[in-house]
């Protein structure tokens, strides 16, 4: 019968569940050959459906791909210099990897200089509130009574070179309030170390209650104290000075102190 070729694919669709409509219906009524073909198509579909598998891959495949996912998404901590951290505290946000637009170096320096100025301001205000001190190293010898804690956050000291009991370090805030943060004491040396108070970085976001903080100990050229606007006392500019930098969970510097 004429038109059989034209309906062959439509017959297949009908056997796979498509409705038999107008033109095809009329053709089938007059064509026993295509009716037989449709019947065979339906039988084949049933046979294929019967062999369709419900198998699922074994658990070992799942374990392998999940392990790969974890490996691929392992978080790599971003290492930042103390200058970057201080600059971030002052509002500078470094561009993410792959960003098309990079912040020009001059703006980075402006942000860092602004951060240094902020620390200078903090030191200036702190020393004005405590007239017996003349610099960050001397303030440690004249520690004022600790103000009752408003926020206490557990601290993980890094790196904990020696296991030492936790101490309470006072974080001096220039204008508004004082915060008491428990920190792991730095390694104890034969000679007792003298530390300044933690100078809170102005404009940094306040720590949340129970926020975990980290303390990083650095050694840096003493000249860097001058960069931050701090007086350089008792040492050559090219000698090293130890500093503890306190960061929040977001890695932003909240306070800094210098160790002698």
């Amino acid at each position: 019968m004429n038109g059989c070729e034209a309906v062959q694919e439509i017959l297949m669709d009908a056997a796979r569940g498509a409705p038999v409509e107008g033109g095809l219906r009329e053709h089938l009524e007059g064509c026993p050959e295509c009716r037989r073909r449709l019947e065979n198509e339906r039988i084949l579909s049933a046979g294929l459906a019967a062999m369709a598998s419900r198998a699922v891959p074994p658990a070992s495949v799942r374990n392998a791909v999940m392990a790969e996912f974890r490996r691929a998404n392992r978080v790599t901590p971003i290492r930042r210099s103390v200058f970057q951290r201080v600059a971030m505290a002052a509002g500078y946000r470094p561009p993410a990897d792959g960003d098309a637009e990079r912040v020009r170096p001059v703006f980075q320096w402006v942000a860092m200089v602004a951060a240094a100025a902020a620390i200078l301001l903090a030191v200036f205000v702190a020393t004005r509130h405590n007239p017996t001190t003349h610099g960050p190293e001397k303030t440690a010898k004249n520690v004022a009574p600790v103000v009752p804690a408003r926020v206490e956050a557990p601290v993980t000291a890094r790196p904990p070179v020696h296991a030492t009991p936790a101490v309470t370090a006072k974080v001096a805030r220039p204008a508004k309030r004082r915060r008491v943060v428990k920190v792991q004491a730095p390694p104890v040396d034969e000679t007792p170390e003298i530390a300044t108070e933690f100078f809170e970085i102005p404009y940094a976001e306040p720590l949340r209650p129970e926020e975990r903080v980290d303390v990083f100990r650095f050694e840096m050229p003493r000249a860097n104290m001058a960069v931050f606007g701090l007086p350089v006392i008792g040492g050559r500019l090219d000698s090293r000075v130890t500093a503890d930098v306190l960061t929040g969970e977001d890695g932003v510097v909240r306070a800094i102190r210098f160790i002698r």
Binding site: A55, V56, F69, V75
Partner: peptide, 25 residues
Amino acid sequence: MMAGNEDAFGVLYERWSPSVYRFAW
């Protein structure tokens, strides 16, 4: 998943791994 959510990847795996597996088989 692209943001690192393992559960989301797990759901995608459970949803489509049978189809991939059966096809390959």
